[in-house]
Design a protein around this nucleic acid. Sequence first.
DNA 1: AATGAATGAGGTTTCATTCAT
DNA 2: AATGAATGAAACCTCATTCAT
Lengths: 208, 208, 208, 208
Amino acid sequence: MTATQTPSPGTTETPSPGETHRPLRADARRNRERILESARQVFAECGADAQIDDVARHARVGVGTVYRHFPTKEALMVELVRQQFRLFADRAREALEELEDDDASFTALEAVMRRNAETTASDAALRYVLTAAGQHIWDQARDEQQDLMSATEELLGRARSAGKVRADARSSDVGMLMCGVCSTMGRIAPGFDWRRHLELAIDTLRPR
Amino acid sequence: MTATQTPSPGTTETPSPGETHRPLRADARRNRERILESARQVFAECGADAQIDDVARHARVGVGTVYRHFPTKEALMVELVRQQFRLFADRAREALEELEDDDASFTALEAVMRRNAETTASDAALRYVLTAAGQHIWDQARDEQQDLMSATEELLGRARSAGKVRADARSSDVGMLMCGVCSTMGRIAPGFDWRRHLELAIDTLRPR
Amino acid sequence: MTATQTPSPGTTETPSPGETHRPLRADARRNRERILESARQVFAECGADAQIDDVARHARVGVGTVYRHFPTKEALMVELVRQQFRLFADRAREALEELEDDDASFTALEAVMRRNAETTASDAALRYVLTAAGQHIWDQARDEQQDLMSATEELLGRARSAGKVRADARSSDVGMLMCGVCSTMGRIAPGFDWRRHLELAIDTLRPR
Amino acid sequence: MTATQTPSPGTTETPSPGETHRPLRADARRNRERILESARQVFAECGADAQIDDVARHARVGVGTVYRHFPTKEALMVELVRQQFRLFADRAREALEELEDDDASFTALEAVMRRNAETTASDAALRYVLTAAGQHIWDQARDEQQDLMSATEELLGRARSAGKVRADARSSDVGMLMCGVCSTMGRIAPGFDWRRHLELAIDTLRPR
DNA sequence: AATGAATGAGGTTTCATTCAT
DNA sequence: AATGAATGAAACCTCATTCAT
């Protein structure tokens, strides 16, 4: 289930290949989308204790339909995480494609980080899965993570060779730092401000 | 449905002077400690969805006893977190007292950060609260947070005047960074390593 | 914590036209009936402290099903009361329809009172809710009460104009007297006999 | 436990004789009174589901003390009811003693009924017992009931021989009617008014 | 393929009663 | 004799999942 498959990045709709998936009927696919979208909203509102029934109701679909598409509540959350990682990977690759000059690579990385942070900030569901979701959920999104990592690594490599990041920076550092930033997003405490946290994180990556 | 009850035992160490707390009977106090300790262990094992029954069993106490001391599961977690914050604040103050020379202040801060991180790494309950799902609980430990913050601020001030930290460093930065580090503690992902994350965080605070 | 749910199935017979009640699926309706019937029996046996679990078991239904139909134990009891008031109102109206002559009106009222008393006597659950159930349960059956009252009032009006009842008799008197009679039904004490009490009550209504 | 003992009417303080009761120590007796009084008040406020803890708190006594005096919650309620019945019997006998002329006997009965009704109206505990749910408790106050009945019978006999009540009136009728009146005391419903109910009941006893 | 009713294990909490202090 | 902390069975209710329609 891990290494063999080409992770077909960015194709949100195409469900993880490798298994025989006769393409979904048009309405089924539409339902799938609706469910995912609803899940995102409902989790955003209710956090962990969102109920499948709520998701179903929000998607105007019976619970059974949700379960037809996602055998488990967890599976649904996993898919949410995967989608997000795919999106982030896409952004990284996009940045890479548009990158004309290694000197701009760090700026590009920064931009991606900022954009991803904004996305996360406005999506409580995402924040929830990134910070609170159990490890087992992360584990099931390993492929997407790796894809994201390697896209990031590439960007980082370019920056490194241009001397724009600290020499020991790794893509996993970017991941950890971003996780950290996201973890302070909901927090209300005097002085807490995730945008500042983000700037600190970006700063951390800079060469000394 | 009836009336007030459970006089909210409050903090063990500092018996919050606002309310009349006749000191707990010796055995009650012992039980309270046992419950708290058990809670910490059980939550560490099972995460947030540990059950009160398990806590009670682990403490060799009836469920009712747990509820006599903590009217709610949440209340129990809140107390756990408060204790932890108090511990952290104590450490900061301790460091402050032992500090002989402003030049050592950053080293002292570092040491405190490392120690706190280790503590958190082995306390899943605390980690949970630092999570999106734990928002609610975090909010109820405001006083302890502020206390921690101000202790940190003092330490930071000393370091700042000795030029050992970046000039714009604030205690809330330390808080955010530490939250960030802790948020990666549970994560198993290629390259993820909270100790490295911690070093990055400490680095971030250094003057450039 | 989440959102609305359980669309409050409402009255079985008269699907209270205010809300959109798509009629229950055949099996659901059957279950609903079964639950209500079981509740009646279980409450009859155990009085107030009948447990929902028992009702469910008696109806050969999962607890969840009971709660799907009645969001609360109280709601279940309320429905029981409502049903009964509806039955009584129906009887009053029936009597009214069959009434050919105002002179027979008091006899008709008497008959209804006797019939209702017999019904209550043989239904401990009903007795329980009529006498012991908290006011808030009664409150939620206000509509049915009023309906019953007005049906009674009509019957009483006819009797009044025929001079067959005391001039100051009101339908609420009938209600109070009947409640009184029912309250002595379970009582075991020398000389206590609800049928005699009922005769006294009927007598009370007679013109002097 | 039933017939042998002379029910020592009116002596509220002296606990049911027949068993060896070394007289309570002065403070114990005081406590007993306080508990009983508190129970009355607490039950009045919270109905049957008042908690022993509340009673204890109200009496400024530990729960243990309550249990020392009354082995069971039920036992406490039973005693409450007994006291009440004793009080009612006392009133009847008092009326009897003060009665100078048989012609005044019905007026005296009326007065007793009114007074008892008022008392009951402000005693939810007693009312609870008159309810289907209180059957159990009622049964344990048989002796006091009988005493009350016979006192009532005497009063009624005088009235009967003076032709002031309906010829077939029995003391159990008075009991049933009073139970009936009391059963409407808690009820709030349009037109319900126990004082009117009481007048109807008194009327019922009048000769036609 | 979709629906939503049914399921029931399992969770939190309450409270009459016991028992150590 | 008094206290109130401890007990734990049992109550109510939830919600992920299954299954008949």
